[in-house]
């Protein structure tokens, strides 16, 4: 008797809720299968490979347990480390340049100008056509840099810096156009955020005697700060997977080389991915926006769907 009551009290989803769950998982099924097969499984395999020597023989792949020696070997691999370091330095230089440049353009485009559509179209064009092979060809004919920029002079002016820092800075100027070409999506994200700020807000501030400078810091800046974060993340992901990234080519080289093989390549990919995630974490720590205090009711309403 007692038992029966207890069983009744235990919460059971109603038939309708249960049906909703079933349909949710039906809709989600392709993605879930894809995740398990193509992400979770391959990630696990990748980690397994990275601790083996993978030899390709006529009878198939042969695995020889190797512990973490691949990782240790990679740490000694001068060329790989050099590529990683230059990737980090270049990202650290390019992210601020791209994001701040995109912000300036977006602010210009947000002003009262004619032919905004045409300018937007020009700034967005590289998103469509800028790819690794095309960029390489353009760099080859010296179209990657503004003709007026004299890299030799810049190198001379910066000669007081250690070469480890100086050469990326010089190459930043040498590839200025190609770097700016990476800012199309970021410009539009900033522009979309800027256009969401209502004109009334500025007018009210002006009436209260705020200067343009104050308006920028008190109204515009808070509105676009989350977008700075978003754009920084997007830029990191973009640079990390771009076709011009030497680290990726090197991993592919390890993979196809008889000397290094799949195990070594997997370990390299793991180290590289760890580094990219670290970069993302740094961006997050620098640029995150503190959570605003949301009234409890709003929070509860928001939770309904979760």
């Amino acid at each position: 008797m007692d038992k029966k009551i207890k069983e009744k009290r235990r919460w059971k989803p109603s038939g309708r809720t249960l049906r909703n769950w079933v349909y949710a998982y039906i809709f989600l099924a392709p993605w879930l299968i894809g995740f398990f097969l193509l992400v979770a499984y391959t990630l696990e395999r990748s980690f397994y490979f990275s601790r083996q020597i993978v030899a390709i023989t006529p009878v198939g792949m042969v695995f020889i347990p190797h512990g973490f020696t691949n990782y240790a070997d990679l740490m000694q691999h001068t060329f790989f480390i050099q590529n990683l370091v230059s990737f980090v330095i270049q990202s650290a230089l390019q992210i601020p340049v791209i994001v701040s440049f995109a912000l300036i353009i977006a602010i210009l485009l947000n002003g009262k100008i004619r032919a905004r559509g045409m300018f937007r179209a020009i700034f967005f064009l590289p998103v469509i056509i800028a790819t690794g092979p095309v960029m390489n060809e353009l760099t080859g004919i010296g179209a990657a840099t503004v003709p007026a920029v004299n890299t030799a002079a810049i190198a001379g002016a910066l000669s007081f810096l250690p070469p480890m820092v100086q050469s990326p800075v010089v190459s930043l100027f040498g590839q200025l156009i190609m770097i700016l070409w990476n800012s199309g999506i970021q410009i539009l994200i900033f522009l979309a955020a800027l256009q969401k700020i209502s004109v009334e807000q500025y007018e009210a501030a002006k009436i209260d005697g705020a200067s343009g400078w104050e308006c920028f810091w008190k109204i515009t800046a808070p509105a676009i700060k989350p977008m700075v974060f978003l754009n920084a993340i997007y830029t990191v992901v973009w640079l990390a997977t771009s076709g011009q990234n030497p680290v990726i080519d090197q991993i592919a080289f390890f993979m196809h080389s008889g000397f290094y093989g799949y195990g070594f390549a997997s370990a390299a990919a793991f180290i590289y991915s760890g580094l990219v995630l670290l970069l993302l974490l740094v961006c997050f720590l620098i640029l995150r926006t503190r959570k605003e205090k949301v009234p409890k009711l709003v929070k509860r309403l928001d939770k309904r769907n979760w």
């Binding site: 193509l38 990748s46 592919a252």
Partner: peptide
Amino acid sequence: WFAVLIFTFVIPPQITMVPTFVL
């Protein structure tokens, strides 16, 4: 699953490249 979705965006595809090739 939503967190997993975000995660799949940020992990570099190179990390699964080798086993995907084998798969």
